[in-house]
């Protein structure tokens, strides 16, 4: 029996894959570099990624206005799940290094959320990935940004980290009359499939504007603008659509960065009170069913040892049977010791 058990345990142990990464990923979130050392099993065991990692930023970055930053990752050669996680960071210290620590505000991440760490699947054919964030720039000055990636390997044995160089971004004070999107405007980052999306553009110092959109990396197409509103076509497939506005006013003409909108399947929904009620009902029913379970027949009892209390020198109480002593003898002795009623 023990030998068979040892064989079974050995087979189970051998069946597990030896990997220091998480092939299923960690999920998008606000994270420091290497998740503070815990993304992979042990940060000290990470290999250095051979991927080329480059950070691309807009030419003019104006304080308090929107801009985009893209991390290009080529040749990561990740694990079989093809997941590559990318960090957008403000320094390489491993702590207090998120963009928010240097005054950047994430408006949209590559997956339509507001995380500085996101995961995407690298296409097997090209092994090229681009992660684009929309950010609101901090106050004027020099603000560093860098990218880092995490991924596994085909063999699964080693987890890798790669970093881009630290890029100094010159954030400038915008001219007073610069046509711009107003500070209150926040571009939508995601929508459901089959949903038309109308956006009302809020602007400052703008006399007129036009809007164009494109499928990710495709040719721009003009959109009709009516009363400061424009409508993006319905998304029929999951993917990314990008749009930008060309703003004209007293100051120099401005073109906003390409804003990304991720189209996705509508999420799974459930009426929470109904689910909670069902959970609570199951709890009560199961407790009730167990409590109502009839006492077992003596031969079905599992006690392998005698729990009959020791019989005192004066014998068992008068009128008691031995069976009653087995069940209630200990209670009798406890009451006797405590001076309570028998």
């Amino acid at each position: 029996m023990r030998f068979k058990l040892a064989i079974l345990l050995s087979i189970l142990l051998l069946a597990s894959t030896l990997s220091s990464a998480n092939p299923g990923g960690e999920g998008d979130e606000i994270r420091s570099m290497e998740c503070g050392g815990s993304c992979h099993g042990d940060a000290g065991q990470n290999g250095i990624s051979s991927a080329s990692i480059e950070l691309e930023t807009s030419t003019d970055v104006w304080a308090g206005l929107l801009t985009t930053v893209t991390i290009h990752v080529n040749g990561s050669d990740p694990s079989s799940s093809r997941l590559v996680g990318a960090f957008l960071l403000s320094n390489d210290q491993g702590a207090k290094d998120t963009p928010a620590h240097d005054g950047w505000q994430i408006i949209a991440d590559p997956n339509g959320g507001v995380s500085n760490y996101v995961e995407l699947e690298s296409p097997r054919a090209t092994d090229e990935l681009s992660f684009t964030w929309t950010l609101r720039a901090p106050a004027a000055g020099q603000h560093p940004l860098m990218g880092a990636v995490h991924h596994g390997s085909e063999s699964g044995g080693v987890a890798y980290i790669g970093k881009s160089s630290l890029n100094q971004i010159s954030v400038m004070e915008p001219p007073e009359n610069l046509p711009r999107l107003s500070a209150e405007f926040s571009p939508p980052a995601k929508r459901d499939l089959g949903e038309e999306l109308t956006i009302t553009l809020q602007t400052e110092n703008v006399d007129s504007f036009s809007v164009e959109y494109r499928l990710e990396g495709g040719t721009p197409i003009d959109l009709a603008v009516t009363d400061g509103k424009f409508t993006l076509p319905i998304a029929v497939n999951a993917g990314v659509i990008e749009w930008r506005a060309l703003l004209e006013g007293e100051g120099p003409d401005q073109t906003t960065p390409w804003f990304r909108i991720v189209s996705q399947e509508p999420g799974w929904q459930v009426e929470e009170p109904t689910l909670m009620l069902q959970g609570f009902a199951l709890l009560i029913l199961c407790a009730g069913l167990v409590l109502m379970q009839r006492p077992a027949s003596p031969e079905d009892e599992l006690k392998q040892y005698d729990q009959t209390p020791l019989i005192p020198t004066e014998g068992i109480p008068v009128g008691w049977t031995m069976e009653q002593w087995q069940h209630f003898g200990q209670q009798y002795l406890d009451d006797l010791a405590g001076g309570g009623p028998i």
Binding site: L277, I284, L285, G288
Partner: peptide
């Protein structure tokens, strides 16, 4: 769920 809950309470 309400019926199950009542049944459980009765038990």
């Amino acid at each position: 769920s309400v019926i199950i809950l009542i049944l459980g309470l009765i038990l």
